[in-house]
Design a protein around this nucleic acid. Structure first.
Length: 573
RNA sequence: CGGAGCGUAGCUCAGCCUGGCUAGAGCGCCAGCUUUGGGAGCUGGAUGUCGCAGGUUCGAAUCCUGUCGCUCCGACCA
């Protein structure tokens, strides 16, 4: 392909509305253009890279035995009502109406569709296991689209759904996808790590996310360098010693004391009170299904709402407002406590079990209580792990201090169980003739997001550094003259032709531009290999191979094609 | 949805506070000349609904109101 015949609108300046470097480079390298917030057009170069990622995904899904299908993006709301997600996922659902005013949904995902298909087609254990996948555009009414392709209203996703007759078989299906994901991200040149994940609104009990470490990521991963444990912070557990009464200022007697103006844990740790954070009980009030519930944590800990969902068994909750709190407890945030509270549900973190000599709010503005004994003074109705694991806490498995880093979620595998198969009637007859719901798994990869994650992870100050397998072109030929009769350009064209015949994806920069412009653009776009042809080196019978980000290699011009092929072979993943 | 900021040429932005000549710069684009190994130089040229609507005023890019869009922070997030 000649540069002048394709369309690569590179940008010298950084677009004002792109915040993170991968988004800036997507725009600057001429890969995408924004139509409006959260919606982008893929330009020829960007589309080529996207297709590369898709191809890798497709090859690995096929290798893992999954079958490609293509489902409708437009879906009837009825199946979403059946699964219950018409309500639970309503915030992300795009709804449209046809001329008869009937409502339709633009699919954010396809569990309902595939399960409906299987419900009608699969009747016997003999037809299982099955795994169907598709690569398709998904629509989500994101509250706040951002970071280019990272979080968009519309994006390309690979989604796969497995159906099994037994739990054990489902586990095998899950592991196949897990292994395929490891290969996919490796082949994309990404350092992605699988981490244990919360299952969220999807339901199900078992899940891993594939995370690409990046400062700009929207997720936090807790991990241990000692044993390899890694989990999304929403799921992560750590091993903090139980809270004892040792060292407490006052054990045994419940004592009310004045704390004028104190409304934070931190303020109580200071003079004259000097109550350490781990000697305090933090009292949060949440409205759970419309009723106030007290959530107790140690003062130095943070609430993990994902864990709260698990402990309460419902996701329908939110922090109470100051007014709701005052109505329930007669005090404002900062002076709250659960001592003597009988009429409200009290839900406490495990680490508070048996804690004595604690300090907490007195439910009277400006007063706290010390000498609190959980159990004696506080009636806890529900216990659970509610705590957000934090950096430095001991790993639950090996005791080494945990670390935390930000990451981009590029893939997610779930063991779903039978939630959807039951709701949508995906039943089969087992060997004994008994009707059973299929055991499902679902497996997503954000294809467009993966593409951007590659750039986020692989770039320098000059531009993108494409891993060879996902580069839009593998090689860019840069002749420093494009006058038709020049030896430089004639050689460039000959090599171009020869490489195409060898099946190499090659771009010939035939623009009549100064060398600096061509070099800068080649670096910006990030071709893995650039072949420079100029008068000076050609006078010595040489051309120049320049791997992106590597050292220049002079090769004899008659060996150029061979050397390029060798380089490509040597860098294949 | 709450908070903050921004909408002026294809891109990056100045001008606005303190209303007033023909609305500007750099980059890009077009033509010509010169140049040719890391985003060249000179000359000439084209390009604007100053987001949109209303208001105040003799006069609005500038002040006021509304509205739409974008960006950031938060909440949210399969």
């Amino acid at each position: 392909m000649n540069w002048t015949q394709t369309f690569i609108p590179t940008l010298k300046e950084v677009p004002a509305d792109a915040e993170i470097v991968s988004h800036q480079l997507l725009l600057r390298a001429g890969l995408i253009r924004k139509l409006t917030g959260g919606l982008y057009t893929f330009l020829p170069l960007g589309l080529r890279a996207l297709r590369k990622v898709e191809r890798i995904v497709r090859e690995e899904m096929d290798r893992a035995g999954a079958l490609e299908v293509l489902m409708p993006a437009l879906q009837p709301p009825e199946i979403w009502q059946k699964s219950g997600r018409y309500e639970s996922a309503r915030d992300v659902l795009f709804k449209v109406r046809d001329r008869a005013k009937k409502e339709w949904l633009l699919g954010p995902t396809h569990e309902e569709v595939i399960t409906s298909l299987v419900a009608g087609e699969v009747n016997s254990y003999r037809q299982l296991p099955r795994n169907f996948y598709q690569i398709q555009t998904k629509f989500r009414d994101e509250i706040r689209p951002r970071f280019g392709l990272m979080r968009a209203k519309e994006f390309v996703m690979k989604d796969a759904y497995s159906f099994d007759a037994t739990d054990e078989a489902a586990q095998v299906s899950y592991q196949k996808m897990y292994d395929a994901y490891v290969r996919i991200f490796q082949r994309c040149g990404l350092k992605a790590m699988p981490v244990e994940a919360d299952t969220g609104v999807m339901g199900g009990k078992f899940s891993h996310e594939f995370m690409v470490p990046a400062e700009t990521g929207e997720n936090e991963v807790v991990y241990c360098e000692g044993c390899g444990y890694a989990a999304n912070v929403e799921k992560a557990v750590s091993c903090v010693p139980a809270t004892t009464g040792e060292g407490a200022a006052s054990i045994g007697e419940l004592e009310r004391f004045a704390t004028p103006g104190v409304s934070t844990i931190e303020a109580l740790t200071r003079s004259p009170y000097e109550v350490a954070g781990d000697r305090q009980i933090k009292t949060l009030v949440y409205m759970v299904a419309g009723k106030p519930v007290l959530i107790l944590l140690r003062g130095d800990h943070q609430l993990n709402e994902a864990k709260l969902t698990g402990v309460l068994g419902v996701a329908d909750f939110r922090p109470a407002t100051a007014e709701e709190i005052f109505d329930a407890l007669g005090a404002h945030p900062g002076s709250l406590g659960a001592v003597g509270v009988k009429e409200l549900n009290v839900c406490a973190d495990e680490l508070l079990r048996g804690a004595v000599g604690m300090t907490t709010g007195a439910n009277e503005d400006g007063f706290h209580l010390r000498g609190v004994e959980v159990g004696r003074d506080i009636e806890v109705k529900q216990w659970g792990d509610l705590r957000l694991a934090a950096v430095g806490e001991p790993c639950n498995h090996c005791g080494k201090p945990l670390k935390v880093r930000r990451a981009i979620e590029v893939g997610h595998v779930f063991k779903l169980g039978s939630k959807y198969s039951e709701a949508l009637g995906a039943l089969f007859l087992d060997e004994s003739g008994k009707q059973q719901p299929a055991i499902m798994g679902c497996y997503g990869i954000g294809v467009t997001r993966t593409l951007q994650a590659v750039i986020e992870q692989s770039h320098d100050k000059d531009g993108i550094i494409w891993p060879l397998p996902v580069a839009p072109y593998q090689v860019c030929i840069t002749p420093l003259s494009v006058s038709p009769e020049s030896a430089v350009f004639q050689l460039a064209q000959a090599i171009h032709k020869a490489l195409i015949e060898e099946g190499v994806e090659v771009l010939l920069d035939d623009r009549d531009e100064r060398p600096g412009v061509k070099f800068k653009d080649a670096d910006l776009v990030g071709f893995p290999l650039r072949l420079g042809i100029g008068e000076k080196s050609l006078a010595r019978g040489e051309v120049e191979l320049k791997p992106r980000g590597g050292q220049l290699i002079a090769v004899k011009s008659e060996n150029a094609v061979t050397k390029v092929l060798e380089w490509l072979e040597g860098n294949r993943v």
